[in-house]
Design a protein around this nucleic acid. Structure first.
Length: 690
RNA sequence: GCCCGGAUGGCGGAAUUGGCAGACGCGAUGGAUUCAAAAUCCAUUGUCCGAAAGGGCGUGUGGGUUCAAGUCCCACUCCGGGCACCA
């Protein structure tokens, strides 16, 4: 195995970073997903600062300058060394011919010259995987032999290379301020570099780097300023002396959009004999994958040019075409697109799956995406797992914004409302070596768990191979049917909450369906037990309260409480003597049809309907039946419930207070005590302070 | 380490703006039905004291605000998820 840098296609998502951040405000998403996206984009404000290295030159032969990004320009006076990433372009230029006089042994990595030290360190870094680099937080590095000049005080400070500075973030180089940065503190301590505090820590502070608030010290004209003030002042100064400016950086990197795989959309680019990329005309699109029998990559050694699987497609890798300057032979790009290429905009095609001219007909697009109010448009409801929080949902937003800028879609955002359904989690079991064991083979006796005779401890987490705790719903489907499975899953709890897969109470969902069935159908004969009779008043009120509640709850995707309300209504039917009134049966079946489509459909047809229940409207509550003439009001004394009274629903506050104070139970409890205050919440309660 | 989310009976969970904690279901207990059982139906079920009426306590822990706190504020604990040398 060896690592090889490749030249590949990138999408410049970073140029959309600000808009991806700002437009989160347009979205009806949870704060946690928005936060994850914000953190992923990782916007931070700071400054660029230029450090001259008088002894080195850049590629143009001018005096080399190292540009750094910092969020703490106010600490510039405390910069006692610099670090550039080992992969940084300037490293070769910065590497001095010999160790300067007085170079400490620890800085040289044991090498005779800076060039040798740098070479050895870079080789070591290149051999480490990114993972190893992240895991090993011990600071390492070597001195380049060069010194940079701190632009604010002309101090000479040593320049190191070290792998704790990442090429992919900021400028790939830092000014190190050990007094105010923990990583720099660790490095400076290990390599015996000066530490100058530039923020006054509190008196009781006895730690290393101090990153809290405080007044500037040892910082010339900044002394005494608080951090924000100092930042503004130093940036102004840097601009004046031409050594820097305020700037914004993001963690978000450009998006690597090429894969060296067979399965994927081929990239519609060809190369001429000089290696210039040319895009293919519409008439050549789409570029289809060639048939390949063997798509394993060719065997390579360290010196050969890497080649993706499509390189094996003889007869496809080149084509003859006239791209405006005569018939010529071109080489195709052999990379394919990542899976995101499709998932970023697939939803657009649902709008119009038949158009051969466009992604979607613009009129349909505008209608379905709500483009009449662009800032409020997008897919009405997108339900998906939280695992898509930062990749799919960010790429997709970016892609959609590009289409928006090109005028192909009418809204700046693809998904208006997003719901993340919770994970179904499961218990996992660990043996005494700390290894996970197959959860399905664990047995429980009296709250203790055993696996192959050994005692194991129970944990809890996301289902998957690593925890060996996956279960499938197949058994439940086989034993109870699809409707019961659906109903149970929705009844288990709020849609967005993680919860354990626990199957003991599924029988309750099955019972509900059976009880609904028996309230409408005679089990022995299969005949309807529904009659076109008047609905008793109390049942009618219960029906309309249920309709009202279920409508509200379903709108809120609160299926568990919807089901509870339906259960209550059905319990009323169970208590009812005689047949079920038709209007109740009709409304009940309409209400359950989104939850249990198969059972509902069958009942719907038994009720005499010819067309499918999916075309039936959801029932509507009669507002007149939602209000009662008399209501029950709880009466508290000093916040404790002491009695309840029935009063007319439209009672005024004074009468309610009088009724409460006249209640025999209250009179008894008060026992003549002085009433200091009475709080009346109309229609809710009365609280007496005595 | 940092950022999100969560904690309510034996269990899953319910509770618009602070306003009757425990809806609905599971489990459990008792009863009806049955030769018997399953299934079904009815009743009880936070906990402690009490025969009952009724009362004390009670939403992870400790404080606070309020007539009133699961809900608001402060400080923690534990659990789940994400990110992580990001300057």
């Amino acid at each position: 195995m060896f690592r090889r840098p490749l030249k590949q296609w990138m999408m410049r998502i970073t140029s959309y970073a600000e808009r991806l951040l700002d437009d989160l405000d347009l979205l009806d998403w949870t704060d946690s997903i928005k936060t994850m996206q914000r953190n992923w984009i990782g916007r931070s404000e700071g400054a660029h600062v230029e450090f001259r290295v008088p002894t080195a030159t850049n590629a143009d032969g001018e005096v080399a300058t190292i540009s750094v990004f910092t969020t703490r320009p106010d600490t510039l006076f405390g910069a006692t060394y610099m670090v550039v990433a080992p992969e940084h372009d300037l490293v070769d230029n910065l590497t001095a011919a010999a160790w300067p006089e007085g170079t400490r042994d620890a800085w040289t990595g044991g090498a005779a010259t800076p060039a040798e030290a740098v070479e050895a360190y870079r080789r070591r870094t290149a051999q480490m995987s990114d993972l190893e680099r992240q895991e090993n937080k011990d600071k390492t590095g070597v001195f380049t032999g060069s010194f940079a000049v701190n632009p604010v005080n002309d101090e000479s400070i040593p320049v190191f290379i070290a792998d704790y500075v990442l090429m992919g973030y900021g400028t790939g180089a830092i000014m190190a301020v050990p007094g105010q940065d923990e990583r720099d503190w660790d490095f400076a301590t290990k390599f015996d570099i000066d530490i100058i505090r530039t923020v006054q820590p509190p008196e009781d502070f006895d730690g290393g780097a101090y990153i809290g608030a405080g007044a500037a010290i040892n910082s010339g004209f900044l002394d005494g300023m608080e951090i924000d003030e100092a930042k503004a002042a130093i940036i102004e100064h840097l601009i004046e002396i031409g050594a820097g400016e305020g700037t914004v950086t993001t963690k978000l990197r450009d998006w690597l959009f090429a894969r060296q795989r067979y399965w994927g959309e081929p990239i519609p680019i060809v190369f001429d004999e000089d290696g210039n990329a040319r895009s293919l005309p519409d008439s050549e699109l789409p570029v289809n994958l060639p048939d390949l029998i063997d798509w394993a990559p060719r065997k390579l050694d360290e010196d050969s040019e890497p080649e993706p699987p499509l390189g094996r497609a003889d007869g496809w890798t080149t084509l003859e075409i006239d791209l405006g300057d005569g018939l010529k032979t071109y080489k195709r790009d052999l990379n394919t697109m990542p899976q995101w290429a499709g998932s970023c905009w697939y939803y657009m095609r649902y709008i119009d799956p038949v158009s051969t001219e466009a992604m979607a007909d613009p009129v349909s697009e505008k209608y379905w995406m709500g483009g009449d109010d662009p800032n409020n448009g997008g897919v009405d409801l997108y339900v998906g797992g939280v695992e898509h929080a930062v990749l799919h949902l960010l790429y997709s937003r970016f892609w959609h914004k590009v289409l928006y800028d090109l005028g192909h879609v009418s809204t700046p955002e693809p998904f208006k409302r997003l719901i993340n359904q919770g994970y179904i989690q499961a218990y996992a079991f660990v043996d005494d070596r700390g290894m996970y064991v197959e959860a399905s083979d664990v047995t429980e006796t009296d709250g203790r768990y055993e696996y192959e005779g050994e005692s194991v401890t129970r944990e809890y987490g996301k289902m998957g191979k690593s925890l060996k705790n996956s279960v499938t719903p197949d058994d439940m489907y086989r034993d109870y049917g699809a409707d019961t499975l659906r109903l149970y899953e929705m009844f288990m709890g709020p849609i967005d909450q993680d919860r354990p897969w626990e199957t003991k109470s599924v029988v309750g969902s099955q019972r509900l369906l059976q009880r609904i069935w028996r309230n409408l159908v005679d089990e022995t004969t299969g005949d309807l037990t529904v009659a076109d009779i008047a609905v008793p008043d109390s049942l009618n009120r219960a029906l309309h309260r249920t309709i009202d509640a279920v409508r509200t709850d379903m709108d809120a995707l609160s299926f568990n409480t919807s089901i509870a309300r339906i259960t209550e209504l059905n319990n009323e039917l169970t208590k009812l003597e005689g047949p079920t009134p038709t209007v109740v049966a009709d409304a009940l079946v309409r209400m359950i049809s989104p939850l249990v489509p198969h059972v509902a459909e069958e009942l719907w047809h038994k009720l005499g309907n010819e067309t499918s229940v999916v075309y039936a409207d959801f029932p509507t509550a009669d507002p007149a039946l939602l209000v009662d003439d008399e209501i029950e009001i709880p009466i508290q004394i000093k916040g404790k419930l002491r009695s309840k009274i029935m009063v007319p629903a439209d009672i005024d506050d004074a009468s309610l207070e009088a009724a409460a104070l006249a209640d025999p139970r209250i009179v008894e409890v008060l026992d003549g005590a002085e009433v200091r205050k009475v709080i009346v919440i109309p229609g809710k309660l009365v609280n007496i302070v005595a």
